[in-house]
């Protein structure tokens, strides 16, 4: 398959999550990605996009924020990059809950960290870069 790159821009509002999921589901279907892998990629991006919108922009008092999703189809890989100009945040530095944490009864659990954990574990490879004053979260799924 010839490399192909498409950029989608979104305003930083939770209302856009549904259209992102629809767009990614379509992209997954178009390249014949399994239903499970498509769902997991969609879930991973939903989690990080939620954090960017809520914490990167809204809680930081930035009302006109936006972010881009850049989709690249390469041989054997689907790569989605989420780029935003919010406060730098590296999810990889975020400690993941341990096996022990995951066995704590629900009512005693700390509430944070789940979204980042889900995002990092739902794709084949997860990377983070801070380039040109932008956060870039990169989600890579093997397509064959």
């Amino acid at each position: 398959m010839e490399a192909k790159k498409i950029t989608y821009s979104y305003v930083a509002s939770l209302d856009v999550l549904e259209s992102i999921r629809e767009m990614l589901t379509q992209a997954g279907n178009d390249i014949g990605l399994s239903k499970r892998k498509t769902y997991q990629l969609t879930l991973a991006i939903d989690e990080i996009a939620t954090n960017v919108i809520k914490y990167g922009y809204q809680e930081a008092g930035i009302s006109d924020g936006f972010f881009d999703l850049i989709i690249e189809f390469k041989e054997g890989e689907l790569i989605v990059s989420l780029e935003d100009t919010a406060t730098p945040f590296n999810p990889i530095e975020h400690s993941l809950p341990t096996e022990e944490d995951l066995n704590i009864p629900l009512e005693e659990r700390p509430i944070g960290g789940l979204g980042v954990m889900i995002a990092r574990q739902s794709v084949d490879e997860f990377k983070y870069e801070f380039v040109n004053n932008k956060n870039r979260n990169i989600f890579i799924v093997k397509t064959n």
Binding site: R21, Y39, T42, L43, D46, E47, T50, P105, L106, E107, R109, I111, L114, G115, I118
Partner: peptide
């Protein structure tokens, strides 16, 4: 058809609200 971590947090909320 879809559940993000926000949904999981509501399950935790239910446990806390209703009792363990």
């Amino acid at each position: 058809s879809f559940m993000a971590s926000a949904g999981l947090r509501m399950i935790v909320f239910a446990k806390q609200k209703l009792g363990s």
